[in-house]
Design a protein around this nucleic acid. Sequence first.
DNA 1: CCATAATCGAGACGGTACGTCGAGTCTTACT
DNA 2: AGTAAGACTCGACGTACCGTCTCGATTATGG
Lengths: 222, 222, 222, 222
Amino acid sequence: MHRRTPPPGRAGRPRSATADAAILAATRAALVELGWSKLTLGDVAMRAGVAKTTLYRRWAGKNELVVDAVAELFDELRVPDRGSLAADIEGVVLQFAAILARPEARSGLMAVVAESTRDEPLRERIRASIVERQKRLVLEGRARAQARGELPPESDPGEAARTVDLIFDVVAGAVVHRTLVSAEPADEQWVRSFTRVLVTGLTSLAAPSFESRTRPDSPSGA
Amino acid sequence: MHRRTPPPGRAGRPRSATADAAILAATRAALVELGWSKLTLGDVAMRAGVAKTTLYRRWAGKNELVVDAVAELFDELRVPDRGSLAADIEGVVLQFAAILARPEARSGLMAVVAESTRDEPLRERIRASIVERQKRLVLEGRARAQARGELPPESDPGEAARTVDLIFDVVAGAVVHRTLVSAEPADEQWVRSFTRVLVTGLTSLAAPSFESRTRPDSPSGA
Amino acid sequence: MHRRTPPPGRAGRPRSATADAAILAATRAALVELGWSKLTLGDVAMRAGVAKTTLYRRWAGKNELVVDAVAELFDELRVPDRGSLAADIEGVVLQFAAILARPEARSGLMAVVAESTRDEPLRERIRASIVERQKRLVLEGRARAQARGELPPESDPGEAARTVDLIFDVVAGAVVHRTLVSAEPADEQWVRSFTRVLVTGLTSLAAPSFESRTRPDSPSGA
Amino acid sequence: MHRRTPPPGRAGRPRSATADAAILAATRAALVELGWSKLTLGDVAMRAGVAKTTLYRRWAGKNELVVDAVAELFDELRVPDRGSLAADIEGVVLQFAAILARPEARSGLMAVVAESTRDEPLRERIRASIVERQKRLVLEGRARAQARGELPPESDPGEAARTVDLIFDVVAGAVVHRTLVSAEPADEQWVRSFTRVLVTGLTSLAAPSFESRTRPDSPSGA
DNA sequence: CCATAATCGAGACGGTACGTCGAGTCTTACT
DNA sequence: AGTAAGACTCGACGTACCGTCTCGATTATGG
């Protein structure tokens, strides 16, 4: 998907189908053992039982390869139905924290983000295959909360999109910072406190009028 | 401070005092021009007008050097007195976003965080010279809010410390994610939305009874 | 021949054939310009239009490279047929002196001999590719003298081998010492005196009885 | 003698007298352990319990230091009185070979000779402090042989000087080559063969008429 | 069923940076 | 002024990866 595509010409030997998966798995294994900065493409090729040329034929370089290898990790995230918006968020956040506790994610994710600060196509690739791809979680959670009546249906589509982005930045950012920078576990206690702040803030932000129906003593009159 | 320290013995030529500042400045300049991954210590040494060995005599490697070079950037942050907790937070967040918009911070910060996932001493160094060092901002903001009567004095010290950590993770994480991953500007509009969520969440978390007692109307009088 | 040999496996790109000659020529050029101690492998690689790694792939280090580069110089030595043993020796010695007058030989030869005093494999390499290789000159000269009747055919093979070694040590040693240590030219006059001493000594050593037959006024009656 | 001389000015602390001997001894010890190419001046200074500056104040560099350290080794050579020219030569050659068997001489001597091919002052220093200094041995041996009547008194002084040079080049060159290049021991058997060739050649060169007059039989009684 | 053509493993290639080491100089405080 | 200590600039070391290339050997499809 995000790889160097073979030219559409039809003749010649086709690319090995199994190689891709082997390479991505080898990349994750190398991330676990060595971390990003000591991971070398020659080593990945060897682990995958593949020649270096095969690897370069399909990916432009280390960064692109690692993005793909890491992106797959986040596809296993699901929004559990725990009965309330707060409980749903807690569930997703705990899953997210669990992934960030795995060394292949820790090592790779921040590194490619760092690289992307000077490489626009790489940033776009990260956005597309990780960030935008996982915003499905926010959309799904919001839909479920709306179905439950916890949140009003969005009126302004632009405002709704901005809110999704804000939520994603706050959730992903806070968990990453807690896990990787502060190096403290994002355990149940922390997740509960975090979620409480977030949900309280969000509901009051979302629709004072809607909210004031259910919580008439809201502090925000602005 | 976080460098290879000269043995305390008095004999011999002392280390050049000006070299340190020149090296850190050269490091930041190289981060701006080249970014972290293309920054080489040989190049930094040349820019600083210093031999490579001098650099290695004082820092263990690229990571430690960049941490020190970046850490200095955050020392200029101040908590402005804008009259209310929300306005104070907005002010600090905007300053923080402005620093993260500078290429020397963008390139370096995430890279060393990434490296620190496999290097415990490096993580501790980051914590000490960046994270813990800047928690002063949260403490100062809280004290000012308490003086204004916006927040109750903390009763449980352990709980208070956990709250400081939580606030720091949420603020720093969200701004970093917005700026570096989503690659959207943390502009006034975004900061206002973010701050509103945060302050609402925090005040209700801190002491709903206290808050509702003293400020039944809007918290912002500005 | 005396180099790091590629593994006999056939796979992969073969080593460039032209690189070897270019490297050895570049080594000699560098010896002329810089001498042994200021010769650097990086410089040799650059002169040869070759990467440093290519050089290290084929030779273990500076010493081995210089031995090979210098050894080739002595392959041009020939035993001229000048009609008598003494004249033949004079011819070879003059050629040898001419080679030692060239800076690429002067700089390199003594240096690798010096290194070989602490490096047994290096000494063996020098012996094989320079010393033993050039003993052909002594053998050829002796054969021609025997054909002329100036020397008797050797009876004891062991003794004959020892004599070849002795001659080589005396000739090579004397010319080298004259040229490099005393720093006086090994010109015609010196070569004539040296050869006279050597031939007189040798013929009397070789076979007094044989010699006394043809030169009844020989001083040696032993 | 061959060192950097202190300026004749009288003021200030005088140079430590013991330092010189300590440095030269440390140099020889380092030659034994490390050989010339791995010998470092910092290491020598440390062994001698002296600062690097002290060392550089007295010698220009590694080569000059090693020449002085090695030159002292040859001062112990003596011409023994063994009753005949041939036996005297054998005695000196064996002593010379014994010195060349010591690692501090092997490592250092050839190295500085190699360096001297591109450093005229260094060559002159070697000539003065080693070569010319030890020609005393040849002079002494000749005088003793003349006193015995084995050699005629020299008539032409120029010719006599040239012969001394020739002998020195042959003897020193052959022993060095045997010992360091061929890497065979210059043992009694080899020395006897070598001496026989040399003496026979020399006596017939020196004065055939003189020799045949006084010693019609074999010159060697051995 | 053979020719064409793209793929594959292997490994040499020209580069660039690494982190270390030694040379020789300079700057301290002390003697 | 000499000394021990040690920081300084400079330049080479030998290694490791990068990303490209050149091999001979496969392995598909299309003529």
